[in-house]
Design a protein around this nucleic acid. Structure first.
Lengths: 226, 226
DNA sequence: CTCCTAGGCTTCGTATACGATTTCGTACTG
DNA sequence: CAGTACGAAATCGTATACGAAGCCTAGGAG
């Protein structure tokens, strides 16, 4: 039998709270810097503050919110330095995950990734940063999702989450990067198809992300001096 | 003026609990598989269960304990597969951290690392795995602690913590690895001194750890077939 | 006019209490 | 004798309540 209650998404209230707050952060309802007051959220969800506390602490551990004792929690993000650190970390982790995952990719996976990338290419004219970013995530997911090491996979997911939370997709700021990105995707796919050694794949995947970061940095430093 | 209370180690009880439980896990008082009952720990510390819950959840986020809803928390560890995953992840993260940190190392740091390594070498005869492991951590700490990216640094620390929690140091099982390890340390130091490029340093640091892992795997598969 | 101090208000931190869920032991039945 | 069902104990999950620590506003002194 299914659950009697139709809208009983998660088991515990902590988890519901966790999922909801996270969703609101990623989706932008709670923008960076927003203060997360326990009592208010508790009221919103119709639960007590205790589960909310737990949810917030979990989000803190993931880096989505910052928390100060006796002060409260605020949505993390914004800070360009933070963006830099996250991207750099992700370049390393994602590169490794992609390399570890590549031997396990079948022809179907490659085809799927290539399909997504073609969609991205089509998306280049009449450019939509949000859609492009979503496709970008889907593309890379196909490549790293087979990573046999769950820890690394988890770290990749966390990195993507953090990037999602500061929803300013890089491509919004540096649209010129999108074209290169699509080309690099294709090159990466060829590398994987040709069973290149893990080292080469890792380096390519890492550089792909580093290049995005560099483009962002160049852009923002140019904007600074304006 | 200093604190009035002499034994007020941490600010909040959650943090005290966190520190204490973590210490007990790392030190081995709570061995892997041990059930962590909230009420019992709360009693031990003379506090209520609420702060304990928070502490446990934090430890869960770090991977030191596993937690099942309505079941309870148990100290993680043991599982050889888990060890493998952790070592592999750490090899990647620590390699990157060491490479990023290397340009920031001064002559004093190198000297200190070399000193520790010489202590390790001296330690080889009349071998003491525990002491050796401690020195090993100190050696690597010197090398990666200057890593400018706090996220990566944090991940390295978490990795080391996890390894510490399954306190069976590799060197206890594979004493033969210790000698090679010391030599590789010296090679790594030379690489850093010669301002080798980051890529070479990263690769060396990663391989150093992978080799330890491989030695462990070889050892344990040999033990399996006995 | 400015700076310092006092009080209240907001919000977090923790204790206690009670309901929910799981597990284990025991008795009953086929 | 084996398997199942019931019930009690243990443990987790959450609500409520109260105390503690920051912050903000108002009032007075220099």
């Amino acid at each position: 039998m299914a659950e009697a209650v139709p809208a009983a998404p998660a088991g515990s209230k902590s988890e519901q709270a966790y999922a909801l707050i996270k969703a609101r952060i990623v989706e932008g309802t709670y923008s960076p810097g927003h203060r997360l007051v326990l009592a208010r959220i508790a009221g919103d969800l119709g639960v007590s503050v205790v589960p909310i506390r737990e949810a917030i602490r979990r989000l803190e551990a993931e880096g989505l919110v910052t928390f100060e004792r006796n002060i409260g929690a605020t949505v993390a993000g914004i800070d360009p330095t933070e963006y830099l650190y996250t991207m750099q970390t992700l370049s390393i982790i994602e590169g490794a995950a992609t390399a570890l995952s590549s031997p396990l990719l079948g022809a179907a996976d490659i085809a799927r990734a290539r399909g997504v990338n073609e969609e991205m290419r089509a998306c280049l004219e009449d450019f939509d940063p949000v859609r492009f970013t979503r496709l970008n995530q889907e593309f890379h997911s196909v490549l790293f999702e087979h990573c046999p090491n769950p820890h690394i996979l988890d770290l990749v997911h966390r990195g993507w989450n953090r990037l999602a939370s500061l929803r300013s997709s890089t491509f919004r700021f540096v649209p010129g990067r999108a074209t290169e990105s699509v080309d690099e995707h294709e090159a990466l796919l060829r590398l994987i198809e040709s069973q290149a050694d893990a080292d080469a794949i890792e380096k390519a995947a890492r550089l792909h992300r580093s290049a995005t970061l560099d483009a962002y940095l160049a852009q923002s430093s140019a904007a600074d001096s304006s």
